[in-house]
Amino acid sequence: MTFTKARSKAAGCAAFAFAALFAGSALADGTVNIYSYRQPDLIKPVLEAFTAETGIETEVLFLDKGLEDRILAEGTNSPADVILTVDIARLTNAKEKGVTQALDDATVNGNLPAEYRDPEGHWFGLTKRARVVYASKDRVTDTALTYADLADPKWKGKICIRSGQHDYNLALFSAAIAHWGPEKTEEWMKGFKANLARKPDGGDRDQAKAIAAGECDIALGNTYYVGLMQTNEKEPEQKEWAAAINVIFPTFEEGGTHVNISGAALAKNSPNRDNGVKLIQFLSSDKAQQIYAEQVFEYPVEPGLEPSDVVKAFGELKADTLPLADIAKNRKAASEMVDRVGIDDGPSS
């Protein structure tokens, strides 16, 4: 298996040069080419299992941005067969930019619940992560919260978050709009902003670090970052950040905890379409979901499949059943609301 790492570059000649580089493998039998926003090391175990089971080799191009534009620039010459990414916004963006194709496959549809699939078959959720509250073990006694509670004045000056415009927060705010409607969500967001301890900054792990440092008491973060911090041997200080927090699964009234997904899509001009379909079928299987979830500390989307022991220790996840396609529809409204309320300006503006 060959893993090719690259950074996104300007469209045009560079894109076609890459297409030429993969020309041999793109036309060969027994190969599937993957364009991925997910780090190669994270997907390596599940791709190795796919090759062991099917004999089909994989080629991976990793990009940290510009994946959709790369495929557009390559056009009909694109070697991409399958797109792997995280977040419902990125999956729907790939669909909206026209770089995916519909797949109506009985195996895939049977493996994945409808709420984690595009109704038109352009993307498929493979694993899920919850948007939860990181709470200080020393300073927070609450063991249960709702998302609405985050606007309660009792938390004034005690909440940390990354940018409100980040995809993970926009997905949560989009879910709030779907549950509450725009007016109630905007009132909630104003209260939430007033409770911030500082201007939004950093990533999810930085919020845990801030809690450990006493800069805030609670924060929003994804579940899988806790597992990554707890098991980080290269940067052991992250274990200390994880040890400083408890995970609380907030819920929407008459709903569950907001979840987002990692997912796959079949590229529009897939030259190895049959192999691409086989890969998506495999990724949707119970076996692959568990390998994938174990590696990245996420939850399988298939009901009844168990997460890793590390993830189980966080507590019970009762995932919201709101279809992700419905959440994605509110993304533009959520982004505009974040700017209107001034979330990223911090609490005092």
Score class of each variant (00 low, 15 high):
Ser335Met: 09
Ile161Thr: 15
Ala175Gln: 11
Ile245Arg: 03
Leu150Asp: 11
Ile43Asn: 11
Met229Arg: 03
Leu112His: 00
Ile245His: 04
Glu59Ala: 07
Trp188Met: 03
Ala333His: 08
Gln39Cys: 11
Lys239Met: 11
Glu306Thr: 11
Trp123Met: 10
Asp167Pro: 00
Lys287Gly: 01
Asp29Leu: 14
Gln290Ala: 01
Leu170Met: 08
Pro153Val: 02
Arg205Cys: 07
Ser349Gly: 15
Gly263Lys: 04
Ala10Leu: 15
Asp217Cys: 04
Thr257Lys: 09
Ala130Asn: 08
Thr223Ala: 14
Ile261His: 08
Leu112Asp: 01
Asp206Pro: 08
Lys209Tyr: 09
Ser270Gln: 02
Asp309Val: 11
Asp69Gln: 04
Leu145Gln: 10
Ala17Trp: 00
Lys158Gln: 15
Leu279Tyr: 02
Gln39Leu: 15
Ala73Cys: 03
Lys239Phe: 09
Asn272Ile: 05
Leu220Asn: 13
Lys312Arg: 14
Lys329Ile: 12
Ile343Ala: 13
Gln230Asp: 13
Lys9Phe: 12
Gly346Glu: 13
Pro79Thr: 06
Tyr134Thr: 03
Arg340Val: 08
Ala14Tyr: 07
Tyr147Gln: 02
Ser284His: 01
Gly98Arg: 06
Leu317Glu: 05
Ser25Phe: 04
Val133Phe: 09
Glu233Cys: 01
Leu91His: 10
Glu215Pro: 02
Gly75Thr: 07
Glu120Ser: 15
Val277Gln: 07
Ala151Lys: 01
Ser348Thr: 11
Thr127Gln: 13
Gln281Glu: 15
Asp152Thr: 06
Gly342Ser: 14
Thr92Leu: 05
Ser174Trp: 01
Ala6Cys: 08
Ala219Phe: 04
Asn195Ile: 00
His179Cys: 00
Leu145Asn: 11
Asp167Leu: 03
Val86Phe: 09
Ala176Thr: 04
Ala151Thr: 03
Ala178Ser: 15
Pro271Gln: 04
Gly121Glu: 12
Asp320His: 01
Asn33Ile: 01
Glu57Arg: 13
Leu228Phe: 09
Asp87Asn: 12
Gly315Phe: 05
Gln207Ser: 12
Thr54Met: 10
Asp345Gly: 13
Pro250His: 06
Lys318Thr: 14
